[in-house]
Design a protein around this nucleic acid. Sequence first.
DNA 1: CTTGCTAACTTAGGCTGCTAAGGTACGAGG
DNA 2: CCTCGTACCTTAGCAGCCTAAGTTAGCAAG
Lengths: 150, 150
Amino acid sequence: MPSALSYELHKLTARLDRAADGLLRTHEGVSYSRFLSLFAVAGGAASQRELAAWLGQTEPSTSRMVGVLAQEGLLAVSTVPGQGNRRVLALTQAGAELVDRCGRLLEGRFEELVKRSGVAYASYQRDTRRLLGQLDAAEQRAAPDRTEAT
Amino acid sequence: MPSALSYELHKLTARLDRAADGLLRTHEGVSYSRFLSLFAVAGGAASQRELAAWLGQTEPSTSRMVGVLAQEGLLAVSTVPGQGNRRVLALTQAGAELVDRCGRLLEGRFEELVKRSGVAYASYQRDTRRLLGQLDAAEQRAAPDRTEAT
DNA sequence: CTTGCTAACTTAGGCTGCTAAGGTACGAGG
DNA sequence: CCTCGTACCTTAGCAGCCTAAGTTAGCAAG
């Protein structure tokens, strides 16, 4: 059987995401998924591939989301000659303003929850990052390096 | 802006779920979502409402999943006269065997990941449970008790 | 018996995630 | 110029979660 911890994490994340989604939908009419994508671009994700990695999602999912956000006028998508099929992502002014408002709405809520629960933020974050890092390493091993396989 | 920790958790869970899903699909032809539902029933979730709470999902989602699993012959659904509209859930033999095989497949993988990452399983689990508990409390406050509101 | 209340479940429609397969832009070698 | 390899993105179709609104079973009061 799987570890109890793995599905407790699943449940925690599902409920956190649902709570954030409800807040953003009510006050800004935008889903949490869309906000996260915009926030990642604001934080430096400059291509779809980078954005997918940032979110822990696949590229097709990201492709569709970028299309939607561009159509809504929140995201500017462009290509640069000489850089292959890469798309360059940037927020429009409307997008930047939305991210700002949504950010303010969520600000502090999660920290408040953590504080009330008595969990040490820093150590929980450190552990979460270690798990992510180890997951990267495991996938690295599963998909062996092709540049050496010549 | 939201806490970095909240989206690191989101990303970690998304990738863990995807990894587990790939494994189960490859070896047993079943999705991780379906396995989790069956596993919860094996673990004592005896009605759809309980199952939804166990998974951190809404009741309509659970309703559909139960329908699918029943149709596949993995879950037995019945009603008991005198207990309202409640459905009693139980695994069929095929369901129990599938849960068993899938459980073996996942067994130890997550613990191995945690061990390699250097994270202390017990304390990470304790913190995760505290966060879940606090989230319950917060939702309790948000939806005030109606039995007193008379 | 009918009306109203509560608990539990279902239906309808939309959004977003995934996999598998296909398309596009650039650079290197013939 | 043509072809191949690499990197990046898209299309098609399916799975599963959500919200809002509706349904069903039991119970209690008139």
